[in-house]
Design a protein around this nucleic acid. Structure first.
Length: 137
DNA sequence: GCCAACGTTGGC
DNA sequence: GCCAACGTTGGC
């Protein structure tokens, strides 16, 4: 199983929206690196849900890939993009802010800090485990 | 809301 | 294929 992190602006789509909908296509990714990451996802992979463009930006919960990459047709006539379906798993009892990520040794190598504009990225098993421990999940 | 960073587009 | 212009993302 692999681990990932995906960003969304909560004003556009939040963890509570996903909780309500239970399963949702993760569409609208228009960056090749992010798309390639979507395409590498397998059913059962775990994904951290990150709220961006809020203060402070933070990891708020966890979801699971339930359908592997298939075409994203939200831009008509543009065949290049992919989406996956994700299922709500849980909202974390504690949230992990970007400041936490910077401060905690085990997390300071996360791609989140290195590639700030990437919206879909891999997370190592150790980083994922560390985050679960932090949130008490 | 600002703006730096950076990915993408398109003229040449 | 280069690179300037442009558009978008996301931390602050």
């Amino acid at each position: 199983m692999r681990y990932w992190l995906m960003k969304s602006e909560p004003e556009v789509f939040s963890i509570d929206d996903l909780k309500r909908k239970k399963v949702e296509p993760w569409s609208g990714v228009r960056n090749y690196t992010a798309r390639n990451n979507l395409r590498a996802m397998k059913k059962g992979d775990r994904v951290l849900f990150y709220h961006s463009r809020i203060v402070p930006p933070r990891i708020v919960g966890e979801m699971e890939v339930v359908r592997e990459a298939y075409p994203d047709r939200t831009s008509p006539g543009d065949d290049r993009w992919s989406q996956v379906d994700v299922k709500f798993l849980r909202k974390f009892p504690r949230q992990v802010t970007i400041e936490d990520v910077k401060m905690i040794r085990e997390l300071s190598g996360m791609q989140l800090l290195k590639f700030s504009r990437l919206s879909v990225m891999p997370v190592t098993a150790n980083e994922y485990k560390t985050i679960l421990e932090l949130v008490g999940a």
